[in-house]
Design a protein around this nucleic acid. Structure first.
Lengths: 204, 204
DNA sequence: GCTTTAACCGACCGGGTGGTCGGTGCGTCA
DNA sequence: TGACGCACCGACCACCCGGTCGGTTAAAGC
């Protein structure tokens, strides 16, 4: 069991720094040697634990990316009373981590989706699957919001869900050019505008 | 002058197929040999006309991408009466070309922006410059819309402009997974919802 | 007809990449 | 104590990529 622990520990280290570098430099632009150098490990160690670069990346997507997307973007919305408010807070938090240049896993997803589009169908499928899970959970939350009176009845939940994901992916794309703080502020402001058009009209 | 014509013709051919392949496979994932093979030209021809791969790409951005973004996304909105309506039609058209798998230059922009982010600052700057031109023109159109009574006075034009660009970039990211038609329909629908929250209230 | 030159050819180079493989040190267990 | 095998080492391979350079061809200019 102790052995298994060591194995897991090493694999985990590899996956963590692997994700960091893949995220920072891109998958195709990051060599296995790059990762191994920053880990002080050798080629032998890598191919002892993983079959190939691709299989290594897929293990990262399933173990790290998926779990983080779940805890950061999906869980905070599950079963909550007012979904629109929860989504707003959740995305704002995600953008804040982006602002401090930490790993923003929502954007990790968007970033990789772009990189592999048309280049590696297998990996693309793993990534779109995660998007779908996110989307489905958004739809569920919105539907619940309808019955609870926080979302207008005639709203198209699927449309809203994919619009939310779209806008979020997009704003993260724009954040590369620096002025993240203003972008985040403006984005949340406009998201609120949009959400107002989805809320039941409150008579004063 | 005849010579100059031939020179221009060849350079143009190179740029066109260069953009196609860079767009389809990514810049780093497309070799100069790839491009030359599909052009039936040799390395010599390439380095006779262009100094480097990077300089070649920049010439593509300035000659093809910028001009197309201008004619497809900026010009149709310039000086128009109702900016929100014009923007909606314009983005819908752009997404339609995407649907038929033609080159959608708005997305070309988003795609490359992602690929070069943190990897090549020089190219990133050229791309963000184009985004800025787009944004500025959106802001101008929105401001004009305010004075013409098509946009609410207290609306934050900058915020709206970057939100529009964000959502558009994002929806194009999602379109990789296939069901473009539904995505486009939903997107335009939600964009209309959002725009409603920006319009002056019309009393019936 | 001879020279010049724009346009293009393609072998070649150096550096990097994913992946292989014969080792090796060290803890475990008989 | 000695055999075994897990986790790791690092030299090596075949291939690819951006870029160079000494040619070649054909048309224009005199």
């Amino acid at each position: 069991m102790d052995k298994n622990l060591k194995r897991m520990a090493t694999m985990n280290r590899m996956q963590m720094t692997g994700l960091e570098l893949f995220y920072a430099q891109g998958y195709y632009n990051t060599s296995i040697d790059d990762i191994l150098k920053s880990l002080n490990l050798s080629k032998g160690a890598f191919y002892y634990h993983f079959q190939s670069k691709e299989e290594f990346f897929i293990s990262i997507v399933q173990n790290l990316v998926f779990r983080k997307v779940y805890t950061m973007l999906i869980e905070p919305i599950e079963g909550v009373e007012n979904p629109l408010r929860a989504i707003e807070i959740c995305l704002d938090d995600a953008l804040k981590t982006a602002e401090y240049n930490d790993l923003d896993y929502g954007f990790v997803l968007a970033n990789f989706l772009n990189e592999f589009n048309g280049r590696n169908d297998k990996i693309t499928r793993y990534l779109t699957d995660i998007c779908k899970v996110w989307e489905v959970n958004l739809v569920t939350a919105l539907q619940k919001g309808k019955t609870d009176g926080f979302v207008e009845r005639h709203v198209d939940s699927e449309g809203v869900a994919s619009f939310i994901i779209s806008s979020y992916f997009g704003v993260r794309s724009l954040m590369v050019s620096g002025n993240c703080k203003i972008l985040r502020y403006n984005y949340i402001q406009q998201l609120r505008n949009y959400f107002r058009s989805l809320s039941p009209v409150v008579l004063a």
